[in-house]
Design a protein around this nucleic acid. Structure first.
Length: 259
DNA sequence: TTCCATGTTCCGCA
DNA sequence: TTGCGGAACATGGA
């Protein structure tokens, strides 16, 4: 379930369970999760070290292991699970064992990645990722500048990590739903007021989600999130929710209040 | 059996 | 150059 709010929750979980303890063992249970790096290298560079800090940018998590950073991407089904009793989740792919417990990186569908990077800044630059929408330096002005000169559907733009990093299918739909803007609306036909509204709604929704996800509390009932079903009643205006495909992804929107 | 899934990448085409 | 549609990746759940 990993978009920005979920990854932020993973980062907090990682900080709570995996920081400042010696890594006594690294088990790679399925090498396909490693991407380019060789298993031996991955293990050798982490074993015996200590994670001293954790950071997140968009959907990417980075943990500082001293001379190298662990990088985790959670794909579609990635998750973290810490246990003191040596219990492993069914789809554990990599396990970091400490003196008093072990943190498992699980990922049923294997779209995620665990590897090593020199440092987050270099990785983000090389990858060309856009700004994180919850970053303090992310302002309405900066957001408007990102959309400047672009065409195409607003949903596509918000989904593109090189433009803005962290939103995925669910939170983009949620943002546009709560802003009353149709997913296919062309970016160059949005008013300044609408762009500002998207900025505000996006940040409010992400913050709300981080707060609730972190406490394992459900998102508010009026959120589109709970009503993603063709023909369902719109919890906001009573209209009918429609299903379509935008940017290759299943999209839900209200045919009445989203224009 | 068939369809669908919170992500990303690559290719071809306009 | 930009944007978009389609397919592929791997796997389980409804």
């Amino acid at each position: 379930m990993p978009e920005l709010p979920e990854v932020e929750t993973f980062a907090q979980y990682f900080a709570r369970h995996a920081l400042n303890q010696r890594i006594v063992r690294v088990d790679v249970l399925d090498e396909r999760i490693l991407g380019e790096i060789r298993k031996e290298t991955f293990v050798r560079k982490l074993k015996g070290r200590t994670f001293v800090g954790v950071r997140r940018h968009g959907k990417h998590l980075f943990a500082d292991a001293g001379s190298v950073w662990l990088h985790l991407h959670f794909g579609m089904s990635g998750d973290l699970a810490y246990s003191q009793k040596g219990e492993l989740p069914r789809f554990a792919r990599v396990v970091f064992a400490f003196e008093g417990g072990a943190l498992a990186f699980e990922d049923m569908r294997l779209f995620g990645v665990a590897d090593l990077v020199a440092d987050p800044e270099t990785f983000l630059r090389e990858r060309g990722l856009g700004p994180d929408p919850l970053d303090a330096s992310f302002t309405p002005k900066r957001f408007a500048a990102l959309l400047e000169g672009r065409r195409g559907a607003i949903k596509s733009l918000l989904m593109t990590q090189e433009i803005i990093a962290g939103l995925g299918n669910l939170y983009v739909d949620e943002t546009l739903f709560q802003t009353g803007i149709a997913p296919r609306r062309a970016v160059d036909r949005l008013s300044a007021v609408e762009v500002r509204a998207i900025f505000t709604a996006m940040r409010r929704i992400l913050r709300e989600a981080v707060s609730r996800r972190g406490r394992d509390v459900e998102l508010p009932r009026p959120y589109l999130y709970h009503h993603r079903e063709e023909g369902a009643r719109c919890p906001r205006c009573g209209g009918t929710l429609r299903r379509s495909v935008v940017f290759g992804r299943t999209t839900y929107s209200c045919s009445r209040h989203q224009r």
